[in-house]
Design a binder for these strands. Structure first.
Lengths: 135, 135
DNA sequence: CTTTTTATGCTATTGACCATAACACAAAAT
DNA sequence: ATTTTGTGTTATGGTCAATAGCATAAAAAG
């Protein structure tokens, strides 16, 4: 059984990415959110008052796709919109949102742990450095 | 502007995978197919007579999602189904399908070339070896 | 031999995520 | 004063993944 895609890095890239995302989504579990929501919460937690457009630029998500995500998180009482300069709106965690951040942090590292225990810490660090060089 | 996901390999994994897939899809261009179709064609070309279930196992695609893809490629005159043992069906390239395989091969390496020219050949080889160790 | 298990191909459906276009509006640049 | 740029938002379509369910056939187990 020949596998013509096995020697291609791109194939293993998407395959490994899917494995990691699967682990992360499973770790979010009963929180009822998925990896893009978790990423948005992490970014806002690290940058209180950040705009939706900036979040999209950091995470490579269109701002038109950020809007409904944020709305859902606002409805859950985890996020709050406060008007800023001009037409901009700053995003902040509510108290309820801050309370779940430990769980978000823990779940977001599920994929990392899976990878690390499988390839080792040194290979993890080397691959991370390599991929960060890519534009 | 803090980026809490930047030190996480998982984030760069999906980001790089998306870049590679985007390059591959662009390279397929006017062929009117996308990366899963190309992968299926490559696998059949390397394994004439392979079943759809086996293709799915190689590529991590559910066989229920392979069926409509194959049907489209059959409609285009690139693939042919020949009944095999029991309920199995072997997949083969038609002559027209064989004629486009050079273009498929060329396009499938577009993502690889993008990565290689960006991180270098040695980092490419090292990362490939690392990710192949992951189950 | 009969029954159960396993595997295959397929349809249908749902959902997640991505991408594009279009709009209203505000700030900044010209 | 006019143009350009940026922001938030809605709507919409498309790709791909996931699940359940069906009919059928081979293989395994009784």
């Amino acid at each position: 059984m020949r596998h013509p895609l096995d020697p291609m890095l791109g194939f293993h890239l998407v395959r490994t990415a899917n494995l990691a995302l699967r682990a992360v989504n499973a770790a979010y579990g009963d929180l009822g959110i998925r990896h893009p929501d978790g990423a948005v919460l992490l970014v806002i937690d690290a940058n209180p008052g950040i705009t939706q457009s900036s979040i999209g630029r950091l995470l490579n998500i269109q701002r038109s796709n950020i809007a409904p995500m944020v709305s859902r998180l606002v409805d859950r009482g985890w996020l709050e919109r406060r008007p800023g300069k001009g037409k901009t709106i700053g995003m902040f965690l509510t108290e309820s949102g801050q309370r779940i951040m430990p769980a978000i942090h823990a779940a977001s590292t599920a994929g990392e742990n899976m990878i690390t225990t499988s390839i080792g810490a040194d290979a993890y660090a080397a691959t991370l450095e390599t991929l960060k060089r890519l534009r």
